[in-house]
Write a protein that binds this DNA or RNA. Structure first.
Length: 492
RNA sequence: GGCGCGGUACCCAAGUGGUAAGGGAGAGGUCUGCAAAACCUUUAUGCGUCGGUUCGAUCCCGACCCGCGCCUCCA
């Protein structure tokens, strides 16, 4: 078996496989770095990460490219308003984006491609399109792609151009296009505006051209898989296809994967509805990075995910359950031998996990397989039927799960601490929940001291004092767990 | 208006032409100085509504109702 994914282009679930002897070429549309990333962005990037990690687990060599759009209208406008060169403006948000990916356990692709570092490639692609008669120069010096020259236009998004109202939404600034649907490849700039001086004249690239130029640069004229959010299907990806295939005469991406938008509290996320959240917003509210990642994977990428605060709490508990289970196994203390029934169940969970992901990245199925195993192994252990030789195979399955889902290792404290430091630097501590601030006001030394005091009280059978200390810690978000081999603490 | 997706228990949610995964939450129990964690039991004769096809439909077909997305910058 191999990975099968829904291909937007064909409308079918198809096997994804590289060309013989080559790595699988993946181009995933990245962010426009004009602001902090929001959870909608990260739903896409986390699912790309799930895909990436799963393919690595299947030992498929990858060549994965993600673009960083570091020049566009919003960036130009915001940078100008801040009186900064665009590079200074975008550097901050690019850095923040990469930190956010790291916070969510998202692996870096093989190549990060910045638009501003690939201007020559874009210019030569546009020149090629002009030579081939697919692009033209408008009166104001901008270049446009002539959609009428590409018969396949609309094949990805299944749009019939003839049926679309032409002219209903013409941008008044772009009066010099031959057809309203034609899109800008190169935007001529007015004197004083940020620009590149090129053989096309002074200007800057249109949005779509960067992906065509950079995908081709790193992956060749044809490659295996192109990924993005569902909104990018039209017009962005459609335009990429038109440009690239017109220039090369070859199929651009063979397989297209689109991640569906999420809803927040049942509504499309938008600033006006007040349900717009960046990753940092959530961290400052006290939610853990692992819970956010886990929630984002709870619904397969092609289904709409309703992101809610209740869901975040549920995911927190679900992750805790998995971590507790892993701790229990590592702690040991099981009878010698091997329970063959449990071993069989372990193998079954392993197979079901992989089968779920192979089936169009069904993360819900894959997760269910692991939770089945957790329940079975826990109940076996309670009955004394989990034996020492069962431990390693189960831990292997857990490791396999975590190589894809990446929530078991607890990096949450470190991530939250970084978010608090960022808020401090940016003067945004007011956005941090008081509860969270209290929770992180205790140093580990102080916590250890209080636990030692409580242990002394317990030894003296002064349970009232012991409970008072537990209670005090609890109000600051520190949970204590007594066990035969000592007291463990964790942050709520 | 055009194209597309979805409506499954208290909440989130997977799934299949043959009788409903998983997570969370609630209740009861085991364990514990008290807790926590963990485990057990329990919560859909039912899968938006109405028809149809079928031996049999939540799953196929049709109509309708509701929600959502894209068609314009957006992951």
């Amino acid at each position: 078996m191999a990975l099968r994914l829904y291909n937007t282009l064909s409308g079918q679930v198809e096997e994804v496989a590289p060309q013989p002897g080559r790595p699988l070429g993946i181009y995933a549309c990245g962010p426009t770095v004009y602001d902090y990333g929001h959870i909608g962005n990260f739903r896409t990037f986390v699912h790309v990460d799930i895909l990436r990690r799963f393919l690595e687990q299947q030992e498929m060599p990858l060549r994965h490219v993600m673009n960083i759009t570091d020049v566009d209208d919003k960036i130009m406008r915001n940078a100008a308003a801040a009186g900064k060169p665009i590079g200074d403006y975008t550097a901050k948000y690019e850095q923040a984006f990469l930190e956010d990916l790291d916070a969510l356990g998202v692996e870096q692709p093989e190549y990060l491609a910045r638009a501003t570092e690939h201007i020559p490639q874009m210019v030569s692609l546009i020149e090629k399109l002009v030579e081939r008669g697919c692009a033209y120069r408008g009166e104001n010096g901008s270049y446009y792609f002539r959609i009428a020259s590409f018969p396949g236009y609309g094949k990805l998004s299944k749009k019939d151009l003839a049926g679309m109202e032409d002219g209903a939404r013409v941008d008044v600034d772009e009066y010099d296009k031959d057809s309203a649907r034609d899109f800008a490849l190169w935007k001529a700039t007015k004197p004083g505006e940020f620009h590149w001086d090129t053989t096309l004249g002074a200007g800057r690239p249109g949005w779509h051209i960067e992906c065509s130029a950079m995908a081709t640069e790193y992956l060749g004229d044809s490659f295996d898989l192109h990924i993005g959010g569902e909104d990018l299907m039209f017009p962005h990806h459609e335009n990429e296809i038109a440009q690239s295939e017109s220039a090369t005469g070859k199929t651009f991406a063979r397989h297209w994967m689109h991640v569906r938008f999420l809803l927040v509290e049942g509504k499309k996320m938008s600033k006006s509805l007040g349900n717009f959240y960046t990753l940092r917003d959530l961290l400052l509210r006290g939610y853990k990075a692992s819970a956010i990642r886990f929630l984002l994977t709870s619904v397969p990428y092609r289904n709409q995910l309703n992101f809610t605060f209740d869901g975040l709490v549920e995911s927190t508990h679900a992750v805790e359950r998995l971590r507790s289970f892993a701790d229990r196994l590592r702690k040991g203390g099981f009878p010698a031998g091997m329970n063959p029934t449990l071993l069989a169940a372990t193998k079954h969970a392993d197979a079901a996990f992989t089968a779920g992901l192979e089936d169009d990245l069904n993360t819900a199925e894959a997760r269910a397989a692991i939770f089945d195993l957790v329940r079975l192994a826990n109940s076996s252990a309670d009955r004394g039927e989990l034996q020492t030789e069962n431990v390693a195979p189960i831990l292997e399955v857990l490791a396999k799960f975590d190589a894809v889902f990446a929530v078991l290792e607890d990096r949450d404290d470190a991530v939250t601490r970084l978010a608090l430091q960022w808020a401090e630097r940016e003067g945004r501590m007011g956005e941090a929940s008081p509860d969270l601030v209290a929770r992180y006001s205790l140093t580990e030394e102080r916590i250890d001291q209080m636990i030692a005091d409580r242990n002394a009280a317990r030894k003296a059978r002064d349970f009232a004092r012991a409970d008072a200390i537990r209670q005090e810690l609890a109000t600051k978000g520190i949970l204590l767990e007594d066990s035969p081999d000592g007291v463990r603490w964790r942050r709520k």
